[in-house]
Design a protein around this nucleic acid. Structure first.
Lengths: 348, 348
DNA sequence: TACTGCTGTTTGATCGATCAAATTGCGGTG
DNA sequence: CACCGCAATTTGATCGATCAAACAGCAGTA
């Protein structure tokens, strides 16, 4: 007992050869229906499972994605990566792929890990998060012909449409545009934007969403908008200070939209309950304190990443050269989650 | 070019056979030093990496740990699991192990995944989080002789010392005991405990830490302690309400210690800036708002889990039957992180 | 009859490593 | 000098699957 069954065992029970069993699993179309049923019955009877390592050795494919787990994302928003990771694992599972983790100290070290995992045939594609301009990682992957997809668009103009660079991203512009529009629709006029210092790919994109919504509303002048456009590094205390400074300057504020939940929480502490604040990322904290926020549909992001990598249905990683008509990237639209702010309301 | 080098290639360059190369990698003691150096030079020159799948096929070991990524931990504290995951990945890397993720809908489904991953030789040990009394998962793993370790002690009395059940946990009693002691040392007397409803393994353990510290202080009666002992389901709003109710009842409170950062944040909102509050888990939120908290040393937990599984140094998973003198579990002591509460102070 | 074309199935070789057994070299001993 | 024991290294077999090519069976065609 106890020895796991192999294709040979299944073949013996079903009265066919190894290869036929293999065909039932991998190319069912080749096998006569009657035979296929017999084999399938034998598989069920023996509880046969293909031996992943043996298959990988032969096919030189691991059916595994590698993803770097960051040492600790910046404060509150780290949760976003984790939710993405979960969504990715789930979607990958559905396609028969596994997700393997690794850590790295810096981009160079990460490249070293790429090499290690690729050479050991541990993974056959990578999912990257948080790419930046002139990222050495994507360059290396492209040069070495390793399939990958990034969560986050490449912010350099050249890279953006490089067909070898697959990417998925959330449309921050749209998120802030919607949030701002919602507040305008509620009759708020002087809506401030609390974001990060320029230049910041994601940050500037979100800022643009706010600004465009405000400009198409048209009631505030460019100068007035400039006054409502705040920048500070991410953090609750920083957000609070930035907004406090604005209020102290005497500028009236009807509402605030933010580039992150950390900033939003800070803003909330500064403005109190009567002025609506909308954050970004819809982190657990936002939910906990009842803060409205822009939710990134990470399920869609994960599904999109896999679709770019594998095509709409497949479970085979073929690399960027598959079909030149396939889409190369996908922009996912976030949506607004409005809340009553019950937990913090009434604090002051 | 482009074909990855194999043991044969390395052997050719070094002027030895495959097996000698293999020995250099796996049993260096068998190889004459001079030969070993030649082989190592060849390995470096060719950039040789052993093919993980080939090795696994032969040895029937995957050098991979499986861990379930939960659908979304309860609110704020989800971050704890994520930090553990990171620590685990890092420590596993150091021992040449990989971490593979999977998802499951419920314990039964998780067992199905165990089977799948084990049969496919994808992983050879599992790390479980959040075990509960009479957990079918640990039972299945024990019965089927699959090595595993849990983060979280089994709360059933029988299971606690089952030598086949390896576990690591954080000493919540000690964490609350220290937090309470710290506040007592600062001259606070009427320290409330805000925790979860009984019965809760972790929750009751933490409560006991507070209670023991208060009792050995001795200045409050049992009845007074009972009045300061609060229970509510986890959440910011719930924590705030529970504490508000206590204050409304006229009971004076000098400080609050909590079973979670969510509850602590709620408490903080209820009591304001002058009364110190200490949370649990030291989540990013606690850091963001400047809340004191009990930090779980997840590095130690992860390292401990691997040590139980593999022994102090090894990279081989041997299962629970290794040596009967090895330790079966480990209790890690958390430590207090005190903060000034700069972000929330002054809100009221 | 012999030959072609097709479908369904089987056999031989292979992926890259390790295990187990065989082999070589060599100093020591009766 | 033949032989033993030991250390260092090599050779043959194997892990479980898939690929590539061969093969059997059968219909259609000349």
């Amino acid at each position: 007992m106890s020895q796991l069954p192999t294709v040979v065992d299944v073949g013996r029970v079903a009265g066919v050869s190894r290869q036929t069993v293999s065909n039932v699993l991998n190319s069912p179309g080749l096998v006569k229906p009657a035979t296929r049923e017999r084999v399938e019955a034998a598989i069920a009877q023996l509880g046969y499972r293909p031996h992943a390592s043996a298959r990988r050795l032969r096919t030189q494919k691991s059916s595994t994605l590698g993803i770097r787990l960051d040492p600790m994302q910046n404060g509150i928003s780290g949760a976003v990566l984790d939710r993405f990771l979960h969504a990715l694992t789930e979607k990958a599972d559905q396609r028969g792929l596994r997700v393997m983790l690794f850590t790295a100290l810096d981009p160079e070290d990460e490249i070293r890990q790429f090499k290690r995992l690729r050479d050991g045939a541990d993974v056959d594609a990578f999912v990257l998060t948080a790419t930046f301009h002139g990222d050495p990682r994507t360059e290396w992957l492209i040069e070495n012909n390793v399939p990958f997809v990034t969560f986050g668009r490449p912010w350099g103009i050249d890279d953006m449409n490089d067909p070898r660079h697959l990417w998925v991203d959330v449309d921050g512009w749209s998120g802030l545009h919607e949030a701002t529009g919602h507040l305008l629709g509620e009759g708020r006029l002087r809506i401030a934007y609390l974001g990060w210092p320029r230049p910041s790919g994601t940050g500037d994109d979100r800022r643009r969403g706010w600004r465009d919504a405000m400009e198409s509303d048209g009631r505030l002048s460019a100068a007035e908008l400039d006054a409502l456009d705040l920048s500070t590094v991410d953090g609750v205390a920083q957000g609070r200070e930035a907004l406090q400074a604005l209020l102290d300057s005497g500028t009236p504020v009807d509402a605030v939209v933010c580039a992150s939940d950390s900033l939003a929480l800070g803003a909330l502490l500064a403005v109190g309950a009567d002025i609506p604040v909308i954050g970004y990322d819809n982190t657990p904290v936002a939910e906990a304190v009842g803060l409205s926020s822009v939710e990134q549909p990470l399920d869609e992001v994960a599904a999109g990443a896999l679709e770019l990598l594998l095509g709409p249905t497949g479970g085979e990683i073929v690399g960027w050269s598959s079909s030149s008509t396939d889409p190369r990237h996908r922009l996912v639209t976030p949506h607004l989650v409005m809340r009553e702010r019950s937990a913090i309301t009434g604090v002051r």
